[in-house]
Design a protein around this nucleic acid. Structure first.
Lengths: 216, 216
DNA sequence: AATGCAGCGGAACGTTCCGTTCCGTTCCGG
DNA sequence: CCGGAACGGAACGGAACGTTCCGCTGCATT
């Protein structure tokens, strides 16, 4: 039972298993982002493996979704931390939004939330994400770049809108989302507030958090 | 078999049937707008009738959806015609978008499209709707109110984004949609284009029309 | 070379869900 | 008083899906 060095098993049964690990996660990502309640067989087909290769790694569909969502949350935090390092507040803000939208992190987190019972780790990362959003937005607002009547809970709603753009293949979807993110950004600039104030108010954190509870 | 005057049968079996007609359509509207692939039993429950009351009026679920979508298209055209009559081009444009979003016409048309085989009447009304959109947008652009790098196929994408806002009850959804429509409008104003041009290009009419074909 | 078993593909199973049909009942209209 | 229109809801048939299970393959160890 001597564990062989990873570099020594580039082929063979172990190596295929290791490759399947990645292939299954990548396939699951693609499939569930495109169709949040796709059957688990679609993931297996997209990964080019059988169903049992899935169940060897994840005890249930729910566990797979939970893992996927965890990955998405970690990605969200990483993007936020990178954007916080950008010197110019507006540039950092833009890079933040672009990063979230390009990676389609929203489809991996909120869309999947409610389809599994979240762990404390999920909640913890979600709070980190909210804190990052807060900081990046407020910095841009204090610099006078983003209009003041925007709250940090407005941003998830913008992600949600952009995530709803699902026209054509993946490449076209990304292109279209960039286009409409540009439009959102034009509306978010502080000078744009001269066209009139926003009616109503942003959702509360509690209302946003309610989406993590199972419902359907 | 003398058909009695409608005003004479405010109660009785015939009257209940007439009332059910409206109740069923209203319930179907509410239910399917909230959940595009809700079971037909949910509509019956929301209308307070049995399932057979539904099947007496519509031979299948598909027929009910087709009728609902037809209503939505007619509503779209009516809103567009009203907006065209507004003297100020920008005001008309705004009223148009507000009307579509408030009535949630998008959920009744595009969301339902693809779930039934469309009739020539559907296609005809859809073309009228596209023509109206074209006219209202171009008028606002020629008046210098809306930025020039917007095409008429951008507007359905904006509806789609706003229709994706589904947080809380119907009242809160409407309030939130108004808020984010305001944000979109700020980005659409011609002066907002000074913040930078839009990347990519709008979808083509053909790409938008593809959503009417069954897929899932 | 023999052998044990990790890993796998996919058929099979049980369950849930949903559209549609059908039957017994009610009660208006003539 | 009776025929039948309208209705409520149980029953049916089939599709879809998550999960389990079985038989096979081929590497690793002896």
């Amino acid at each position: 039972m001597t564990e062989p060095d990873v570099r020594d098993v580039l082929n063979g049964r172990r190596a295929q298993a290791a490759r399947n690990d990645g292939a299954i996660l990548a396939a699951a990502r693609t499939v569930f982002v495109a169709e949040p309640d796709a059957p688990i067989g679609a993931v297996a087909r997209a990964a080019g493996v059988g169903i049992s290769a899935l169940y060897r790694r994840y005890p249930s569909k729910e566990a797979l979704l939970a893992t996927l969502c965890l990955d998405g949350l970690r990605q969200f935090v990483a993007i936020g931390q990178a954007a916080r390092e950008v010197a110019d507040p507006w540039e950092g803000f833009v890079e933040f939004l672009r990063g979230i939208v390009d990676a389609d992190v929203h489809s991996l987190t909120v869309y999947l939330a409610g389809r599994f019972t979240p762990t404390p780790e999920h909640r913890d990362l979600a709070m980190q994400a909210a804190a990052l959003t807060d900081g990046i937005l407020h910095r841009a607002q204090q610099a006078g770049a983003v209009r003041d009547d925007i709250e940090s809970t407005d941003l998830p709603m913008i992600y949600e809108q952009l995530a709803a753009i699902r026209l054509g293949n993946a490449a076209q979807i990304r292109e279209l989302r960039r286009r409409y993110l540009d439009l959102h950004l034009a509306g978010l600039r502080s000078a744009a507030s001269s066209y009139g104030s926003l009616t109503g108010s942003a959702p509360t954190q509690a209302e946003l958090g309610a989406r993590w509870n199972r419902s359907t």
